[in-house]
Design a protein around this nucleic acid. Sequence first.
RNA 1: GGAGUGAGCCAGACGAUCGCUGUGAGUGGAGGUUCGCUUCCAGUCAGGGAGGAAAGUCCGGGCUUCACAGGACACGGUGGUGGGUAAUACCCACCGUUCGCAAGGACCGGGAAAGUGCCACAGAAAGUAGACCGCCAAACGUCAAAGUCCCCCUCGGGGCUUGCCUUGAAGAGGCUUUGACGAGGUAAGGGUGAAACGGUGCGGUAAGAGCGCACCAGCGGAUCGGGUGACCGGUUCGGCUCGGUAAACCCCGCCGGAAGCAAGACCAAGCAGGGCGUAGAUCGUCAUGUGGGAAACCGCAUGGCGGCGCGAGGCUGUCCGUCUCGUACACCGUCCGGGUAGGUUGCUUGAGCCGUCGAGUAAUCGCCGGCCUAGAGAAAUGAUCGUCCACGACAAAACCCGGCUUAUCGGCUCGCUCCGCGU
RNA 2: GGCUCCGUGGCCAAGUGGCUAAGGCAACGGAUUGCAAAUCCGUCAUCGUCGGUUCGACUCCGACCGGAGCCU
Length: 148
Amino acid sequence: MSPQTFTKAQHIRSPADFERVYGLKCKVADGVLLVFAAHHENPVTRIGLSVSKKHGGAIVRNRLKRLLREAFRLVQDQIPPHLDLILIPLNKEKASLAAYQQSLLKGSDRLQRRLNQAALHDLSLPDLTLTDPATMQRPDAKPGETTP
RNA sequence: GGAGUGAGCCAGACGAUCGCUGUGAGUGGAGGUUCGCUUCCAGUCAGGGAGGAAAGUCCGGGCUUCACAGGACACGGUGGUGGGUAAUACCCACCGUUCGCAAGGACCGGGAAAGUGCCACAGAAAGUAGACCGCCAAACGUCAAAGUCCCCCUCGGGGCUUGCCUUGAAGAGGCUUUGACGAGGUAAGGGUGAAACGGUGCGGUAAGAGCGCACCAGCGGAUCGGGUGACCGGUUCGGCUCGGUAAACCCCGCCGGAAGCAAGACCAAGCAGGGCGUAGAUCGUCAUGUGGGAAACCGCAUGGCGGCGCGAGGCUGUCCGUCUCGUACACCGUCCGGGUAGGUUGCUUGAGCCGUCGAGUAAUCGCCGGCCUAGAGAAAUGAUCGUCCACGACAAAACCCGGCUUAUCGGCUCGCUCCGCGU
RNA sequence: GGCUCCGUGGCCAAGUGGCUAAGGCAACGGAUUGCAAAUCCGUCAUCGUCGGUUCGACUCCGACCGGAGCCU
């Protein structure tokens, strides 16, 4: 499995998945990108794109989407797995490949940590953790190493 | 060379690496299988992969579903003529009006003597005319003033017998002139207004007026010629002239059933529904809750345990026996219709493109030959580097075509017109 | 992608083709008051833009621009 590809399985495609990610309301924004995230049982990280009509016509919005896909394609091996991300570009003037790569990495890292904390808190509640028996091992190990 | 005008074409190019999409070939893995094959995933090779406007959604069609005997009305659209076309509000040619020196451009270009409405303010008047001011005094009436009354004539004076009637005068009446009023004639002129009832000249008249005449502009009828036709040209007659607005209602001719690929067709988890099949609406007891009753007690609901019966399964080769499970708004099996999520399809070979020839002024059409040229679906064309140049505008398919409109850095080609210079 | 509708001062809005346009709230200025509030008076409009029809357009017609809603 070569890390530089970007296949259809890495797209978030169904409206139900979009609703699930938006419903968690776990989001991070810098001046460039707004990123929503949610855990996912498949180790393949998936992304969905949402570009507002504010940014311009179809040409401009298509260009932004392509930049985002290219940025994700180039840095996807550094992004933690088991995630669904929704990327929303914010500032058209700051749009560039490098900026998107940087804020994608930072944002996904912060979201991963926040999701793990939320999962630890919700361990007492019985209803939520039906998706990730596989993911539970990793988040337990990682914060143990980094936080002290 | 400059200015302009019309038509058409192009829409950065090339190379390398990484990546996306669907097509074809073949490889590997997983699943299904009636062993014919087929579905999904990964990777290899080959070739394809946004526009002239893909846009706005303003028209016209195809296609799909629904509705539907036929006709008329309503409603909506359309509007010079002829042609082109699947069709059009589009295109071509022509006609008319108009702008431009010209090449050429623009025109929602039927009907206002079928009817209705409106035309603010101003103005006399805004429409089958009418008459405020003005002009007129020929004809009519009333009133007032002046003049006159006989004779002659060259029309202004003269003459003598000083005048018709009553005795003289005054007055009255008649006539003439002037003025006022009434009734009347007239529409030449009148500040206005976007628009005012043909224009100029001569005649004519009381004043005037197409009232008459000449020329000009325009309208209508008849007729002749040309043209398929819109229309053009001529002759003659007429009343002399009729306002504007139909992107106000309306009238006339023609066209139009409605909705739209998120249309529609097929498959179909889950949940809910229906039909059929299957063995108890069983007995006892206990607990809890609850109702009635003074109480004894009698009911109802839920649950536990047990008995008998039934069904399924196990033990055993079979029966008996025994064990487990189930035993009624359920479960199980099976079938049915509708159909959500989701999937498949519609989905690209078409009023298609290119070329020769032919028909036609042209739009366009015909014959023949060649070509296949995006088909996605949270939605594919990107990133990085290098070279070159004119230094890259507007902007991306979403069922498909034909148009129109709008946006657009620039570049190229051809036809034509005007001006300047040279030969 | 398709369909429907709407644009009038800062905001909400009325408006038969005939006055650069009714009203309410706000803002500003003035009057009133010892100062405020309330009250009264006044000011504030390229009728989304452009073109056309008409003598005349917010109104009628066309083309653009902007903004909503519905179909999923």
